[in-house]
Amino acid sequence: MRHPKRSLTAGSIAALIVGAVVLGAAVYIMVNGLGLNPDLDFGAGAYYYADIPDYQQTLDWDSYTARLPFVVYLLLFLAWGFLMWCIWKRLDRKQ
């Protein structure tokens, strides 16, 4: 089967240019070791919090004391989530 000939659109040319610039900048950053902190034994490659070496000691995640009971945060969390779920369904219906 022959595939239809595809032409380059302005969007795809712009994407190619942006992609090349972003890739070039990322390579430059990596080659020159930019943005790292010598006191921290990790970088962007630690995707998830538990990937950070000794994260138990490294991450200071008890530095704020919440003032309201946990249940208040939980209810707000669930209420906002429910609202967003309803909006998502509505958004999908309109399409």
């Binding site: 921290l40 490659g45 630690a46 998830y48 919090y49 200071d60 995640w61 704020y64």
Partner: peptide
């Protein structure tokens, strides 16, 4: 995006920024 990058980028702005960055990312 990545948690490690958040902690490193936050640390560039100082200890308080790093803590705030990590708390939000958590």
């Amino acid at each position: 995006d990545s948690t490690g990058a958040v902690a490193v980028a936050g640390s560039v702005l100082g200890g308080e920024a790093e803590k705030a960055a990590v708390l939000v990312k958590m």
